[in-house]
């Protein structure tokens, strides 16, 4: 083995050892301080129209029925709690649910964008997932882009009369995958590769997070199906009340 190859090997081993110390990672929150300031601001600005639309929609609903304020807040707390609980007997990086796909199906993308912002802020401060500077980027990928795709696929499947379980699974799983793709893109836009630019960088980030994000998306899909079916079986009146939030996105 040449000297250089030896040093590379040493680096790889060191990497693996370090990784053993890394506590469980779950969904792809971009950590605090990782994005340049310009991108932090840019992603924040991109989110603004969606958040504004979400808040306007919420305010309108609240005017009609002030009572749903506690329901909206409970839903936000629900998403946070679900995302913070570790699922026993599921190892490694897919042991947490994100809950935003479920939120999109139950509450609609408008409400989820606003609640998602709050949940992400709380996750940064209470659980150290994500960050304050990266709040804009994370909000876009996890509270806007992903839920939109989830909701869109869910509605599309509904229109095409696809089996309920399959449509929920596809919606939640693909929404999650879309979030992961958007996050990879966000990272690659900020840090284009010296060989191959943004495109190559995107491929690298996609590749590096795939082992954790792909199984996570599948598990998210399965769990969302279980939860939605259980709710439809036992909680028709509650779903009706919450469905009120969904109308007229």
């Amino acid at each position: 083995m040449s000297k250089k190859e030896k040093s590379v090997l040493r680096a790889v081993v060191a990497f693996a050892v370090l990784f053993a110390f890394a506590p469980v990672a779950n969904a792809m929150h971009i950590m605090e301080g990782y994005l340049p300031v310009s991108f932090c601001i840019a992603w924040g600005v991109v989110c603004l129209p969606f958040l504004a639309a979400g808040m306007i929609s919420m305010k309108k609903k609240l005017k009609e029925n002030q009572r749903i304020i506690t329901l909206i807040a409970m839903s936000g707390a629900f998403v946070f709690v679900i995302s913070s609980l570790k699922i026993p007997s599921v190892t490694g990086s897919c042991s947490h649910m994100t809950g935003t796909g479920l939120g999109a199906i139950l509450l609609g993308p408008a409400s989820v964008s606003v609640l998602g912002l709050i949940v992400l802020l709380f996750q940064a401060i209470l659980l150290a997932h994500g960050g304050l500077t990266t709040l804009g980027a994370n909000t876009f990928s996890m509270a806007v882009a992903g839920p939109f795709v989830t909701f869109g696929i869910y509605k599309l499947c509904e229109k095409c009369k696809v089996n309920k379980k399959l449509s929920v699974f596809l919606a939640a799983c693909l929404g999650d995958l879309f979030t992961y793709c958007v996050t990879s893109l966000q990272l690659s836009l900020a840090y284009p590769s010296e060989v191959g630019g943004v495109a190559a960088s995107a491929v690298k980030f996609l590749g590096v997070f795939a082992p954790t994000q792909l199984p996570l998306a599948v598990i998210e899909g399965i769990l969302t199906v279980i939860i939605v079916i259980a709710l439809e079986t036992y909680a028709q009146p509650e779903l009706k009340a919450v469905g009120f939030l969904k109308e007229a996105k």
């Binding site: 990497f15 370090l18 990784f19 110390f21 890394a22 506590p23 469980v24 990672a25 792809m28 929150h29 971009i30 950590m31 605090e32 990782y34 990086s93 150290a128 997932h129 990272l187 960088s201 690298k204 980030f205 590749g207 590096v208 997070f209 954790t212």
Partner: peptide
């Protein structure tokens, strides 16, 4: 806590 994300991103 952010070590896993950091390592993976650094690799990329």
């Amino acid at each position: 806590i952010p070590l896993a994300f950091l390592l993976m991103s650094t690799l990329a």
